[in-house]
Amino acid sequence: MPTYFTIQEANAALPNVIQKFKALQRQRAEVQKIEAQLNSQMGMSFNLGDYATLKKQLNSAVTKFYVAVEELENSGVILKSIEEGLLDFPSKRFDEDVWLCWKEGETEIKFWHEKDVGFMGRKPLSVSDESLV
């Protein structure tokens, strides 16, 4: 069963969530860097020892990446897009499951959307948030 966030709880959790998201982005960049090195190694005079070393580094970086995803999602949020910087916090609006959504660069939760609608369907939180858990 998911953890449901109120707007206040989501905003209180946001600094920690942002920190975890940034760590995830750094780990993803590390994976991409090692992949690029591995690909360039294949194009040059192929050295099996160097290839094996890079492959082990890539395996380790990918494992760390997935650990970072788990750490982020264990905080109760759902990762929607690393590239676009989108995270959703499960919430309820009356009896309906909804998402409180955050986009990278925002300093607080200001939008929500239905669970079957994506980022383009975001709606601003109303002045009165009593309808959200």
Rank of each mutant, 00 (worst) to 15 (best):
M1L: 08
P2N: 12
P2F: 09
P2D: 11
T3I: 14
T6H: 08
I7M: 06
I7D: 07
Q8Y: 03
Q8W: 04
A13C: 06
P15T: 08
N16H: 13
N16S: 13
Q19S: 13
Q19C: 12
Q19P: 05
K20Q: 09
A23G: 12
A23Y: 11
R26V: 03
R28M: 07
A29W: 06
A29I: 09
E30D: 14
I34T: 11
E35A: 01
A36Q: 14
L38G: 01
L38H: 03
S40P: 07
S40L: 15
M42Q: 15
M42T: 11
M44N: 12
M44S: 07
S45Y: 10
S45K: 14
S45F: 13
N47Y: 01
L48T: 13
G49N: 15
D50S: 08
D50C: 10
Y51N: 07
L54W: 04
K55V: 05
L58R: 07
S60D: 15
Y66F: 09
Y66Q: 11
A68T: 06
A68H: 05
A68C: 07
A68V: 03
V69E: 09
E70I: 10
E71A: 09
E71F: 04
E73L: 11
S75F: 01
V77W: 01
V77S: 00
I78F: 10
I78E: 13
I78A: 11
L79F: 01
K80I: 01
S81H: 08
S81W: 08
S81R: 10
I82P: 05
E83C: 11
E84F: 11
E84L: 12
E84A: 15
G85E: 03
F89S: 00
P90L: 09
P90E: 10
R93P: 05
F94S: 08
F94K: 09
D95L: 11
D95A: 12
D95R: 02
D97F: 06
D97H: 11
D97S: 10
V98D: 00
V98E: 02
W99V: 00
C101N: 02
C101S: 05
W102M: 04
K103A: 06
E104N: 10
T107D: 08
T107S: 14
I109P: 02
I109Q: 00
I109Y: 01
I109M: 05
K110H: 03
W112V: 00
W112E: 08
E114P: 06
E114Y: 09
K115Q: 10
D116E: 15
D116F: 10
V117Y: 06
V117T: 10
G118L: 04
F119Y: 00
F119P: 02
M120P: 00
G121V: 08
G121P: 05
K123Y: 00
L125E: 06
V127M: 02
S128T: 06
S128C: 12
D129R: 03
E130N: 14
E130Q: 09
V133I: 14
